[in-house]
Simulated assay, not measured.
Amino acid sequence: MIRHLVLFKLNEGVERDDPRVVAGVDTFRALEGRIPEIRSWELGWNFSDRPIAYDFAISSSFDDRAALTRYLEHPEHQAGVAPWREFATWVIADYEF
């Protein structure tokens, strides 16, 4: 199995209630069940106020690296990620478990 972690940091001046952010989160929430490669899907807002914390996280799992690649290339995933480029940066980690 592969774990795919994504941590998002909203750009300076962008808040959680920004309509772009709300739409972006809604789009990510809708991906579960729409892309067959997804085995597990969790997402949520960070509640820590530590300065090193990121704002939003997605934790998902896939059967293998090929399934992760198909997910990453899937048109619905690409459409979901595209708007986030306007208001956030992110880091990822992919690992086998």
Rank of each mutant, 00 (worst) to 15 (best):
V25R: 05
E96V: 14
E42S: 13
I38A: 00
F87S: 04
H74A: 04
R16F: 10
A82N: 09
R34N: 12
T89V: 14
S48F: 10
K9Y: 09
L10N: 03
V22H: 09
E86Y: 08
F62M: 05
D94N: 11
D94L: 07
Y71P: 06
N46K: 04
R50M: 07
A88V: 07
G33K: 00
I35A: 04
H77M: 09
R85H: 15
G44F: 03
A79K: 12
R65D: 14
R3F: 10
A57S: 15
H4D: 05
T69S: 14
D49P: 11
D63Y: 04
L10F: 15
P75G: 13
G80I: 07
A67M: 03
V25E: 09
T27S: 08
A88K: 05
E12V: 11
R39M: 05
L72K: 09
N46F: 02
S60Y: 02
M1E: 03
E42H: 13
A93K: 03
S40E: 10
L31F: 06
L10H: 08
P75M: 15
F28E: 00
F28I: 05
A66F: 07
D18T: 07
V6H: 04
D63E: 13
E96D: 09
F47Q: 13
S48D: 14
A93P: 05
M1P: 06
K9S: 10
D94F: 08
V91N: 05
P36E: 10
A88S: 15
V6F: 13
R34G: 12
D26E: 15
F47C: 11
A53I: 09
A53W: 08
H4L: 01
D18Y: 00
G24S: 04
I2V: 13
T89W: 06
E32F: 07
V22A: 08
A79N: 02
L68E: 01
S60W: 02
A23D: 14
I2W: 03
G24K: 00
V81F: 01
S59V: 15
I58R: 01
I2Y: 03
F97S: 05
H77K: 10
A79P: 00
T89Q: 12
K9F: 04
A57Q: 06
R3T: 13
R29E: 14
L31N: 02
D94G: 09
F97H: 05
L5Y: 06
V81Q: 03
S60C: 10
L7A: 13
L31C: 09
P36A: 14
A88I: 06
R34W: 10
H4P: 00
V22C: 05
G44A: 03
I58D: 00
L7T: 13
F56Y: 14
D18E: 14
R70Q: 14
L72F: 04
R85I: 08
R39G: 09
E15T: 15
I52Q: 10
V25H: 05
T69V: 11
R70C: 07
S59K: 10
L72E: 09
D64K: 03
A88G: 11
A57P: 00
F56W: 08
A67G: 10
P51C: 02
S61I: 03
R29Q: 13
N11I: 05
E96W: 08
G80V: 12
L7R: 01
R39F: 04
G24M: 02
E15K: 15
R39H: 08
P36R: 11
D94H: 07
E42N: 12
I35D: 00
N46I: 03
D17I: 06
R34T: 10
W41Q: 04
